[in-house]
Design a protein around this nucleic acid. Structure first.
Lengths: 245, 245
DNA sequence: ACCTGAACACCGTTCAAGT
DNA sequence: ACCTGAACACCGTTCAAGT
């Protein structure tokens, strides 16, 4: 069975299967041979659609970043601020009821609100695929969705009045926080086995074995606390900045 | 040459060589066979000293975490607050001159200062070995140095007056930020090739190709800005907390 | 106790061969 | 154009054999 008249594989199918495998069993479980088996095909077949395993990983990463909502930054193609970007969740096309109850003042979303919404969307896109975060954290490289994301954040901050150097730093520190929070669960990192926490060695960790059981709320709470603290701190700096002019 | 009378290998030598290899060529470059070659020994020899590659990685990770300074939290064995913990950088033993010019009030370091100093030490220990951060970010597991770190931070915050739930969240969000900042350089993630940043696609990234050249200052500045913003935000929350009592 | 070579079931990738 | 099996240089780990 060589060269079927309708192709068995496509780049999209390969990328999707790779992400499933990474999610289910970790980055280390993604081997070209294993992936091929998953797709009912022989190992070398993949190389008709992707050049190398690294290129495949890049495509997987960019597909994840593509899920991040950037609409709060206003879209460069003229779509109004706050509009859906095609991700599921937007209103159906002809839904005239449920108009915005109050659109306080047209214009760009205030930067702290935009940053907050974006950080939440960014985190949930990444946290859905924690095993691939180490790859994606290496930076945008030449991946279009990652570059679009960096462009949107930086552009919005500059237009809001942040000096370019500061805007760069804010983009960086937000990425630090979000990738760090998506990389691994804090709570789940503590073994649920109570015997690990010998009181003689770790006097304050007596309850740490309960953490794993509250995985969701602990990590969610830490992210929200950190995000709001960070935004408060940045607002303080922005006020100091605009005060003197 | 089987069973030399003085052993060729030791666990410490293996761990140190593994870390060197990971630093120099990345996590993927660490293979047991390659490591063995580096140590002038045959592959299976390693298994006389470590049970599996995973156990070896765990040991490497804990050796890195062991470099983090925890002295600002006060040490449980009675060593006074702020004393050296054995890491190079402390004063030589018999150095009576250069006494503290002003010790404002004996007692524990104020928690924002302790957190700041710890975060800086934590980050520099991790950023010295970015390739291993994904492993270490999985949480303390059963690694003694990682558990000691978690115990010290949590204990200090609770003793400073933070409710236990909040202290947990602060430990988590600080780890998010620090691991995120050590995982990869923000600046270096942007290709230095100016042609990547097509003005039609990324209208605000015209200068992004310069980022990689300022790697150190961009990342350092982002870390410091984020750290201070985070601390400001937390201080705000602590004030609100103590206000009502 | 500590090292060795041989062996097993894996890897990523190339390539000639098939349709 | 797109799939296959064979082949190459790698993996982690086990095990019997040596001293």
């Amino acid at each position: 069975m060589a060269r079927p008249r309708t192709p068995l594989l496509s780049r999209e199918r390969i990328v999707a299967a790779a992400l499933r495998l990474i999610d289910a069993e970790g980055l280390a479980a993604l081997s070209t041979r294993r992936l091929a088996t998953e797709l009912s095909v022989s190992g070398p077949s993949l190389y008709n659609h992707v050049a190398t395993k690294d290129e495949l990983l890049d495509a997987v990463v960019d597909s994840v970043i593509g899920e991040v909502d950037l609409s709060m930054f206003g879209t460069p193609d003229g779509t109004p601020d706050g509009a859906s970007d095609g991700t599921p969740g937007g209103l159906p096309d002809g839904a005239p009821d449920r108009l915005p109850t109050a659109t306080p003042h047209r214009g760009p979303t205030p930067w702290p609100d935009a940053l907050r919404d974006w950080a939440r969307s960014y985190r949930s896109a990444l946290a859905a695929h924690p095993n691939i975060v180490p790859v994606l954290a290496q930076g945008p490289g030449r991946r279009p969705n990652a570059l679009r994301l960096a462009d949107a954040v930086f552009g919005h901050l500059v237009e809001a009045g942040w000096p370019r150097g500061q805007a760069t730093r804010i983009g960086a520190l937000m990425r630090y926080f979000v990738t760090g929070s998506a990389l691994a669960s804090f709570a789940a990192g503590f073994p649920a086995d109570a015997e690990v926490y010998d009181a003689a060695d770790y006097p304050h960790l007596g309850e740490a074995h309960r953490l794993a059981g509250h995985r969701g709320t602990v990590d969610e709470g830490a992210f929200e606390t950190g995000l709001e603290a960070l935004l408060d701190g940045l607002v303080l700096r922005f006020e100091r900045l605009t005060e003197r002019s």
